[in-house]
Design a protein around this nucleic acid. Sequence first.
RNA 1: GCCGGAGUAGCUCAGUGGCCAGAGCAGCCGACUUGUAAUCGGCAGGUCAGGGGUUCGACUCCCCUCUCCGGCUCCA
Length: 643
Amino acid sequence: MNINITLPDKSVRKYSKELTGYDLASDIGRSIAKEAVCMEINGQLTDLNTLIKDDSKCRIFTSNDQISLEVLRHSSAHILAQAVLNLFPNTKYGVGPSIEDGFYYDFLFENNIKEEDLLKIEKEMHKIAQEKQNFTKEYLPEDEALMIFSNQQFKEELINTADKDEGVNAGEVSIYKNGKFLDLCRGPHIPNTGYLRHFKLTKLAGAYWRGIETNPQLQRIYGTSWFSKEELNKYLTRQKEAEKRDHRKLGRELKLFTSADELGPGQYLWQPNGSILRNQIEEFSKSAHKNNGYEFVNTPHIGRSILWETSGHLDHYKEGMYPALTTEDTNDKYYLKPMNCPFHILVYKNDIRSYRDLPIRYFELGSVYRMEKTGVLHGLLRARGFTQDDAHIFTTIDNLNDEILNLLTFSIKLLNCFGFTDIEADLSTRPKDYIGEDKDWEKATNSLEEALNQQKISYKIAQGEGAFYGPKIDLHIKDAIGRRWQLTTIQIDFAQPNNFSLDYVNSDNKKVRPVMIHRALLGSIERFTGILIEHYAGHLPGWLAPTQINILTIGNVDEHLQKIVKKLNKYRFSIDNRNIRLGEKIHDSKKMKIPITLIIGENDRNNNTVAINYASGEETKDINLEEGIKSINKVLKKPTFKL
RNA sequence: GCCGGAGUAGCUCAGUGGCCAGAGCAGCCGACUUGUAAUCGGCAGGUCAGGGGUUCGACUCCCCUCUCCGGCUCCA
């Protein structure tokens, strides 16, 4: 017998008998054997103890490989379930995958557990880890597996519905065993439980079985695990950093916005500082639209029920709308608007339109109200009342390509101006339930895809994720700490032009239906502001900061101060001339995250100089006044939007 | 909406059935006249989220409601 094993570096090793991945790793070198976690045979990921029986291409994965981390976390989930069953024997266990930065497992406990139980479970996991139980894989016939799991309803369901991801395949079921613990699983796993050392159970949450709202709700335990203590600590610090960026906390500290119980959940009040920021964003957006072919419209906040019947909102989204308002003098019902489109459509319908008029682009910073479920509300990022940078474009289908490409460029450049440069897209295609003609869908989807290709923006296709009325592009940005946020949405709509019988007169003097594009680029101004705050951790770019310059005086510098103020009065500045120590003034200035702290004392008065502290931490002293102003102008420069 | 956690001064938080509920910061008053991350002293600030109950006695224990936080589902 002769087995040739080809390694990733193309070298070939010859063996005279079957061997495991661990044997192979040990033969390659002691350190790789020590670090080995799992392996790949002919492209198939598998356990380290799998026997290599034939000539094959093999690759050993060590704790340095990303894939090993996923394996570790998946095994962590198994050990979590094992610990839970040891402590709470009557628990029913569901599924437990690895996820980004960690893992979870879903359980149905006899009595719901509490957060403090996590410590106990963690302890039990450590105990299991110390026992270094081997993970072994077995294949069982389906009926035998059903017997083993006969009092585990979720496992039975998994076997019966043949979910391949959980190790069920064509009458045969793969299970993993470590110690006395058994679980349905495709694997692979770490060689033994001793590989689990640096982990932490992080939170307890509710989760519906298989993610379906009508299914029973299980308790989900989240955890994180790593190969080294350093990585675990790094992760935990990263979590703390993310907490520091929380826009709700920063919003309070920087006096940007607030809420009040009297308003009801999901509604926010913008304080003066926040309003400056918000107005800057809105003005920037408005001027970009004004200079690029949009006409501005303004529309009310409520409309009669007939409007929402025609638009289909009452049929499809009634539960997402605030309840109707009624008046005493008539039987009319009015609804707060959850979208602006029906109003823009009414503006369009107010006149006969010619193909020469198209495309018509109506823009509005439109405030909408949506009855979001209480549990999903999340500061400005998910509010009930918010304002969209909304526009509706009415176009001929022939112009669709140009419009979409133009929009994509517009949005990317706009996002760039706010410092978001890492942008990706989702192209959502026709869902199962849809309206309209197949050929229109095809044309619209092609327009979207073509625009994405021309923009050279990386995108993935979200099959069947489009709205029922048309396909869409969503743009996601990546923030400073790597989180992705969806901002822009560009949606093609075949339905509303039909619902409202929209038309225009074409060159043959015939009435033809236009296509509509719904688009919000920043999305919701509230949400966008929240994301900006988190992205910059409150250190807003100079042009957006509520107070751009804080001038700190030391001693009697009135004349010098007046001279400087004259030169800076186009900026939003404040003057701190309190008779307190400079250190305290600087402390206050930093606390409010003001981009420029200008310090002037008597020395500066005498020498016509200034000292500048920048938000970046950079500090300069004894700078000539003119030079200082130049530097300030640079930091506070507003970006220019150009298509 | 569901599961779990929480709600004490403007903010951050102490206070586990027993006198009039505390601290730091912020605020106000006074002193200090200050050159790179919090000067000192004083004053004021509370229906302990709201309502009901248990108890001689409740911030503390129980029930209901509201709000917030972490998730799940949802996001036109």
